[in-house]
Amino acid sequence: MSRKGKSAEDDAWDAITKKQPPRRVPRPKPAAKSVVKPAAKAAKPRKKASRPSPYKFWLGLAALATLALVVLYVELFVEKRKSAWPEGHSVYGVDVSHYQKEIDWQQVRQNEVSFAFVKATEGRTIQDKQFQRNWEKAREVDIIRGAYHFYIPHVKPELQAANFIATVQLSSGDLPPVLDVEVRGRKPVGQLRADLKVWLRQVEDAYGAKPILYTSYAFYKDYLDGHFDDYHLWIAHYNVPELRLEKSSRRKLAFWQHTDGGTIKGIDGMVDCNVFYGSMRELRSVCLP
């Protein structure tokens, strides 16, 4: 049946029954993907501060102590090379014998050596076993050479002179023969001087050249001073800045042996070193013509 009019109740009913809009049901959010974080790297354990090893410390200390001992030994006991030549001279030489063994004369020449005295004989019968080799090799490298005889006071001077003359053959450009006198023996001083003059005269007659006289400073002053002024002198005087003898018109000072502990390349061990009082030109004027 139809109803023409609406009462208040009808309106209320309509309000109640009026179709309501559908309720929106929220969609469930998709579950968040779980992000798996990489595991943190395990922290490295800290190294403990290294302490110096006692073993290394003592090893280093021992090495330093050894080095110090080596330096001390060298300073105290090892023979050191000495300067071969004194100041104020420019013509240098050596004198040698079998004590220097085999010498490299080429190296000697390259070390400023201009002249060399070579031991030839001693006493009545002795010949130095290295004489011939030294004599020939020195000449080969253009070193001015000289030969010497070591004098024995108790042996007759004539026999000693004959030994030297039979052993040594001198050539033009060689230094005059040398008489090496270092010991007096039991001879009275006057007799020693007379015997030395016998040797000197005999050798001078054989070679036609006045010999050179070698001795030490003290021996010269004690026994020979003023008695052999006609001869060129070769004086040994060590550990002094200069020889205490002077060259003069009376004294023919020619050579100074300033050390018996010199070192020269080419010679094994220590060697006597000498200087000439003059120039190379003056040295050649002393040699045999």
Rank of each mutant, 00 (worst) to 15 (best):
M1Q: 12
S2Q: 13
S2D: 11
R3S: 03
K4D: 13
G5D: 10
K6I: 15
K6P: 12
A8R: 11
A8H: 09
E9W: 06
D10W: 05
D10A: 11
D14F: 12
A15K: 14
A15Y: 14
T17A: 06
K18M: 08
P22C: 09
P22A: 10
P26Y: 04
K29E: 04
K29L: 04
S34F: 07
A39E: 15
A40E: 08
A40H: 05
A40N: 04
K41N: 10
K41C: 07
A42C: 03
K44M: 10
K44S: 11
K47T: 15
K48A: 11
A49H: 12
P52L: 11
L59V: 14
G60I: 14
G60M: 14
L61I: 04
A63Y: 05
L64C: 11
A65Q: 15
V70R: 07
V71H: 05
V74H: 04
E79P: 02
R81P: 06
K82E: 09
K82Y: 06
P86H: 09
G88C: 03
V91P: 08
V96P: 00
V96D: 00
H98S: 11
Q100T: 02
I103V: 07
D104T: 00
Q106G: 10
N111C: 03
N111L: 04
S114A: 11
F115A: 00
V118N: 03
A120E: 01
I126V: 14
D128F: 12
N134G: 02
W135E: 06
E136S: 05
I143D: 08
I143G: 05
H149L: 09
Y151W: 12
E158P: 13
L159H: 13
I165D: 00
A166P: 12
A166M: 15
Q169L: 05
L170D: 01
L175C: 11
P176T: 03
V178M: 02
E182K: 09
V183Y: 14
G185I: 08
G185K: 11
R193F: 10
A194K: 10
V198D: 00
L200V: 01
Q202L: 14
D205H: 06
A206H: 01
A206T: 01
P211V: 01
Y217N: 08
A218H: 04
D222G: 13
D222Q: 15
Y223F: 13
G226K: 13
I235E: 02
A236R: 02
N239F: 05
V240R: 12
P241E: 08
L243H: 02
L243V: 10
R244Q: 10
L245F: 00
S248H: 12
R251M: 09
A254M: 03
W256A: 02
H258L: 06
D260P: 15
D260A: 11
D260S: 14
G262D: 13
G266D: 10
V271H: 03
N274A: 05
G278F: 06
M280F: 12
E282F: 08
L283A: 09
R284V: 15
C287L: 04
C287E: 03
L288K: 05
P289D: 07
